[in-house]
Design a protein around this nucleic acid. Structure first.
Lengths: 324, 324
DNA sequence: CTGAAAGCGCTTACAG
DNA sequence: CTGAAAGCGCTTACAG
């Protein structure tokens, strides 16, 4: 049913070789202008679409790079990474295809359906999948558990450091009684746990009391929790991210509390809205542009058969505004 | 270099047929347990990864569905669509792969690298690309210019209706002198233009003066524009989206203006933060869940060879809060 | 129950 | 400058 290059060849009155040469602009060939036009016209008339599978099989490799995204919601950082990768790869004639991984489905099934040149993993890969891919000659970049060269998608140490950074800033402002506002999103619990770990460890190190944790719904003002914190003498709250911080801020306003006088609030991410709250939100910014460029550089290196560059050491920074 | 099924067959001392039967769990075959284990062990030992290209070529079709995303930033609506599609397709053994389209690169190149079963287009496709895909037996769902059956990615009429909805609400609140706050994001200009069109037409219809337009940076309070509007006697501002509205709100606060007394502000999208501003933001919510389900249903219908269901008619709705 | 063989559609040395 | 032919790795009728 589908039109093949043989059909085009027949219609144009030439061989399949010629069709291939014309359609791929193969260098080193010299097809007469007339023949060329015949072929192009026949292909257009028949609506010829080449078989990607046959092409890939014959050439021994595809022009595809697959990026596997984790099962949790990703933000603008990942968008930046994806855009950058798409453009960089395009310059080499490669296409980036993104797969949103669901834990319900083993990744190994995917490799039966597509054999990419490189796999970019922003999620944790089972070790044997990783091995199988590599043995099959498919390079893997940035997977969470690639521990032999220090690259990591979910960098556990980094997540803990983020929590610690919040505590250190809040402590430096003279706050001693801290609370944690966390997310209810199940897919984010791994991160939330790691960050809470970092917060607890930092509190212990600074000899601050262990902070209570509350789940906050980002869709409505967290007035009830805020009132409870006030009653308990909590002075500052470290939020899972800016979205949660917005809800805490709105809760404080509703409860009639002064921020940061009665309660200091600290976010994480530095989304645009963080600069627009009243008072403007103190938060943490991560070096996402650097991370995106690093990942793109890793893919380039792998394509060129060079060793992957070391992970950049640019740290996350506190953006001090007015809520602490 | 890569391991093939022939290598596995040799290592296991069986034929390629048997390897294929075992590895694919082909129904209707009855391989002895011993043989089966031999094959599995050999495959694991050699790190065998099947060639997706050969498989697809032989079977005449791939297990891939490609979704082409537009060149502009997408929000949570698209994420919902993608998650839903991924899960629905997984039930049929299909994988969803997402491509972020860049206008710099013609889409037709992509079809040389991958031949999906279905293409889901959330962006505008050139008409001849569309024809070529269809002639090649690849179904296309939801592309922007599929005009013969009423499906549309960028629905121009809908974009205009969104602008009109803002004007109608603002007008019903008694505001006559309107302004438009638009985005500076180049990739969004097509939408911005369409919505501004809708706003102007609605103003004309309601006999309101033509509204002036200002570009607002979502990263900082729009105090300067707000002061200018106040000086010009503007009573209400229709914002391109909630992000812009947040910047206008922050600007009004900085300028010491009362919202909605001195200036009414209306957003669009109903992001979580819209319920958390002070005062809470009046905005518009789009039936995104319905749209996601519709698109998923279209893909299912196409896979089953059935006609695509009609586009749902659920309208966008004004969410009245306190800024108007 | 297992194996030998054909063929999917393409690209590319090779021959003319 | 153009064509006939091989072969990429797989699956699946078909034969044994």
């Amino acid at each position: 049913m589908p039109v093949t290059s043989a059909d085009v060849a027949r219609a144009a009155g030439v061989s399949r070789t010629t069709v291939s040469y014309v359609l791929n602009d193969t260098p080193g060939t010299n097809i007469s202008e007339g023949t060329r036009e015949q072929v192009l016209a026949a292909a257009a008339r028949l609506g010829y679409a080449p078989s990607a599978a046959a092409r890939a099989l014959r050439r021994g490799q595809s022009d595809l790079v697959v990026c596997v995204l984790p099962d949790w919601p990703t933000g603008p950082v990942v968008d930046t990474v994806l855009d950058l990768l798409t453009d960089n790869l395009a310059e080499r004639g490669l296409f980036l295809l993104v797969h949103h991984h669901r834990s319900s489905r083993p990744l190994r099934e995917l490799w039966k359906a597509v054999t990419p040149r490189v796999v970019v993993g922003l999620t944790h890969f089972p070790a044997d999948d990783l091995r199988a891919l590599r043995q099959a000659g498919i390079e893997v970049v940035g997977a969470g558990d690639v521990d032999d060269d220090g690259h990591a998608g979910i960098d556990e140490g980094n997540q803990r450091a983020l929590g610690a950074l919040q505590v250190e800033h809040l402590g430096s402002r003279g706050h001693r009684r801290l609370a944690v506002a966390t997310t209810q999103d199940g897919r984010l619990q791994e991160f939330a746990g790691l960050r809470a770990d970092g917060i607890r460890q930092a509190c212990a190190r600074l000899e601050l009391p262990a902070p209570p944790t509350a789940v906050v719904d980002p869709a409505r003002p967290a007035a009830a929790v805020v009132r409870r914190w006030a009653a308990e003498g909590i002075e500052a709250v470290a939020c899972y991210n800016d979205e949660i911080a917005l809800a805490v801020l709105a809760g404080a306003r509703e409860a009639g509390l002064d921020v940061p006088g009665d309660l200091a609030v600290m976010g994480l991410d530095d989304v645009p809205a963080a600069a627009l709250t009243s008072p403007p939100l103190t938060t943490i910014t991560q070096p996402s542009a650097a991370q995106a460029h690093h990942l793109a550089a890793c893919v380039e290196a792998v394509l060129d058969g060079e060793p992957q560059p070391p992970w950049p050491t640019e740290p996350s920074r506190v953006v001090v505004r007015a809520t602490t």
